[in-house]
Structures are given as C-alpha cells and as structure tokens.
Simulated assay, not measured.
Amino acid sequence: MGTKVLKPKVIFVLGPPGSGKGTQCVRLASEFNYVHLSAGELLRQEKSKPDSKYRKLIDTYMKEGKLVPVAISCGLLKKAMFESQRDKFLIDGFPRNKDNVDGWNKDVAGYVDLQFVLFFDCPLEICIKRCLKRGAETGRDDDNEESLRKRIKTYISESSPIIQHYNMLKLVHAVDASKEPDDVYKDVKNLMLKYNPKSCYFILFQF
C-alpha cells in the first residue's frame, strides 16, 4: 500500500485588532498540535530584516494601517507552511480583504483543506483599549492611537465583508471574544473538539 497523502488542514482566524486572536491561537496550537502562523508577525519579522527588499514597503503600509499587498503576505505564509513540514495550521489575521482572498484562492487554496473560519467577535471599543494597553506594555509600533484609528477603519471597510463572504459559505464559527481569556478559550476549545482533525501521514507541498 502506498503512502497516504492528505492536504494540510487550515483554519483562518479573523477578528478586529485586539480581539485576542494571537493569545488564543498560542493556546490552541499547543493543545491541538497546530502551527500558529500570524500574518502580522510574519510581516513584522520580514520588516526587521536589513536585507529584505520589502522592508520599507511593509513599514509604510503598517504605519498607515493599510493591508500589505497579497503577493507579500501570501508568499510569507506559503514559505512558513512549507518550511514547517507540518499538516495543521492556524492562520491568524489572514485573509483580510478581497485581494487576500483572491490571492489565496489562486496560489494556495487548491493545495490545502480549509476547515473553517474562526471569528473572534468583540466590540471595537474593547479592542481599542486592549491594543493601547498592549502598545504601552510592549512598545509595538502599530499599537498607537493614530495607527489604531486607521487599522480599525481598514477592518470595517475591508475585513468585515470577508467575514460576511465566508459566513455565506457557512464556514464561519464565531465566539464572543469580549469575555475573559480563559472563558473565551473554553468556547474555542469546545468548537475545536468537534473537529478533532487527524494528522496526515505525509505532507506534500507543490506551491
């Protein structure tokens, strides 16, 4: 019998800035053996590389609260997935606009199994307070009031329609992210237990 080949499994994790996506993904990745890939963190890492040809472009887009071109975001995600050689991924903060969806569908969708979209639903006023607190504690340069106003505007105009798009496809599972982190995690964990995906025997990437 030949080696069984299955497509890597992907869960998109979406929500406004400060909704707790990253915090919850770290816990989920550990308990359910997923690789947590944060689109934003991959961009920040790329921005920090002195020899990156995208460094200045990424920095400008992030400071303006704009979404980086999909060729860059999707390319970094594909590279991280391939290098991990793992079979289950939480993709945090992607796709965030129609361009992201189109780029993903063109270059990646055919090689993976999109399980569902995990949506962290949280009032924007709570998200803003969380981001400002995080910025004061960590010094993250896009967690300031000016950048946040732009990021929230982008989220409302470009990211919200994407959540509606996947909702029409019956792929969205929403959780109340305004609660305390432990309570949010209980809800997310119960959702994940319903899927309990099995690992592949062999991972094949042909991007």
Rank of each mutant, 00 (worst) to 15 (best):
S199T: 13
G75M: 04
G22F: 06
R140A: 00
I91N: 02
G65H: 07
V10Q: 00
P16I: 00
S19P: 05
G93H: 01
Q24S: 10
S159G: 01
F202I: 11
A109G: 08
G2A: 15
F89H: 01
P123R: 06
C131M: 15
S19W: 01
Q45H: 13
D142Q: 06
D183N: 14
C122W: 05
E137R: 02
K150P: 09
C25M: 07
K129F: 02
C127V: 03
K129G: 08
K78N: 08
V5Q: 12
V68P: 05
I58E: 05
K4G: 11
D92K: 09
V117Q: 09
I163Y: 04
K9Q: 15
K179Y: 04
D92G: 04
E31A: 09
E146M: 07
Y155Q: 09
K79Y: 09
S48H: 01
D99M: 10
K133L: 15
F32N: 08
Q206F: 08
Y61H: 11
L171I: 08
L118R: 05
C122M: 06
L76R: 02
M1I: 12
D141E: 13
R151D: 03
A174S: 15
F12Q: 01
G22Q: 06
L193E: 15
I126D: 12
G65C: 08
R134C: 02
L37T: 06
E64C: 13
D92A: 10
V112Y: 00
N196D: 12
T138I: 09
N33M: 12
Q206V: 13
Y155G: 06
R151I: 11
